[in-house]
């Protein structure tokens, strides 16, 4: 982390986090947004970031990472269902893709893993450093988590 403002790449398909966090956290953090997996990977390759804030569900992104054909086959040719699966889990797909691309920037996921601790352990084991914020986290907690992650501190 350089300077006083951590550089945060917010990966979300809408503008909810950037708008809300921009209002509450802008003085402490330099928030930039990527709207889908490919553009996030591009920005990660081109610039230096301190931390990534990653949403899980992407139902408004036009481009989704993942193998739609393979999923369709798994779901008996139901492309609609395959696409929904990609949308519901797109954050995990982006996480896997950015680690595969060699990106080691700490990731904070916005997803309620409280109900799925084993799933979180699976992801953290493969794609750490990773932490998550419970859905009840407010801007202050998000800021603290992002800054801690950027500094490399343990959760």
């Amino acid at each position: 982390m350089t300077g006083t403002r951590a550089r945060v790449l917010v990966i979300e398909d809408g503008h909810e986090y950037t708008t809300t966090l921009g209002r509450f956290l802008a003085p402490a953090l330099d928030l930039q947004r990527a709207g889908d997996g490919p553009s996030a990977l591009e920005r990660l390759a081109q610039e230096r970031w301190d931390v990534i804030f990653l949403d899980m569900r992407f139902d408004r992104a036009s481009v989704l990472l993942g193998d739609l054909d393979e999923l369709s086959a798994r779901f008996a040719g139901d492309v609609g269902r395959a696409r929904r699966t990609l949308e519901d889990n797109q954050g995990a797909y982006i996480l896997a893709a950015l680690r595969e691309a060699g990106c080691t920037v700490p990731v904070v996921m916005s997803y309620d893993f409280d109900g799925e601790p084993r799933r979180f352990q699976n992801l953290a084991r493969r794609y750490g450093p990773l932490r998550y914020l419970t859905d009840t986290a407010g801007p202050a907690e998000i800021r603290a988590a992002l800054l801690d992650a950027a500094r490399g501190e343990p959760a």
Binding site: D114, R118, F120, A124, P129
Partner: peptide, 16 residues
């Protein structure tokens, strides 16, 4: 889908 045990942990965890 496997249902996870209903363990509620506040906060997060660090990947290793």
């Amino acid at each position: 889908q496997r249902a996870e045990a209903d363990e509620v942990r506040p906060g997060g965890g660090e990947g290793r």
